[in-house]
Nucleic acid binder design. Structure first.
Length: 226
DNA sequence: GCATTAAAGACGC
DNA sequence: GCGTCTTTAATGC
């Protein structure tokens, strides 16, 4: 019973972005178009962002100059949170992933204030940070010594933790990613993602359409639903 | 086992 | 119609 925990337990969107308050909106909202940089590497890290609308890609470049996609975030998810942990500089790059991407930016000081005032909020933020780090670390490890299929299976597991909805006999995952996005996240080609998904569909492990997955065999993806 | 290349169908604006 | 997304197949490492 851990689906959408970050939205269910404490609605970040409500806490951070009370759209009813006009002044707040004017001060904190910012709009971006596809490809716009939200922040660069080595830029001063003084804000935490919440995705209010659209999508955001978090990327980094390795020594060879390859782009590594760390995360693709959607509404309700936060990023840039390392600023809260004392990071003075960004160590990654945030790019708007779609037109009409709206972000809510909070100064670190304001975040601390909110965290002091609302303990549930503080706990949620800490949980988000911990989980994101763990997932990222695991995924980067995988890139080296696991094959594409295993990486896809484990990404689906992560998708489940973030976006999964447990239904009677199956699990529904609305993951907002295209096959290209998935390929970027697991470091493979989109054709490979297509082939692998089709293969799993043929084995009755799952079904997929657009940006949605239906899992028929949760065990296969390491998902326990008891 | 997977990347690369290519070609073509599906779908939304 | 045009760009984006997906599928499928051939070829090579």
């Amino acid at each position: 019973m851990q689906k959408l925990w970050f939205l269910e337990e404490v609605d970040l969107y409500k806490i951070l972005c009370p759209t009813k308050v006009k002044a707040f909106e004017k001060d904190h909202f910012k709009w971006y178009r596809k490809g716009d940089f939200i922040y660069f590497q080595n830029e001063r890290a003084e804000k935490v962002f919440l995705v209010s609308r659209g999508r955001v890609k978090i990327v980094r470049y390795n020594e060879e100059g390859d782009e590594i996609v760390h995360a693709i975030l959607q509404k309700g998810e936060i990023f840039g949170e390392m600023a809260l942990m004392g990071a003075s500089q960004r160590d990654d790059i945030a790019i708007a992933g779609s037109d009409q991407t709206a972000l809510c930016a909070m100064n670190v000081d304001q975040m601390y204030q909110l965290m002091r005032d609302n303990q549930r909020f503080e706990l949620t933020i800490l949980k988000v940070i911990g989980l994101k780090l763990k997932k990222l670390e695991r995924r980067l490890d995988q890139l080296f010594f696991k094959d594409a299929k295993t990486r896809l299976i484990e990404l689906i597991h992560d998708f489940y933790e973030s976006y999964g909805l447990v239904q009677e006999q199956q699990i529904l995952i609305k993951h907002h990613c295209t096959q290209q996005d998935i390929a970027d996240l697991i470091g493979t080609r989109r054709e490979t993602v297509s082939t692998l998904l089709k293969e799993m569909k043929g084995a009755d492990l799952l079904d997929y359409q657009n940006k949605q997955l239906t899992i028929f065999k949760p065990e296969y993806f390491g998902i326990r639903t008891t």
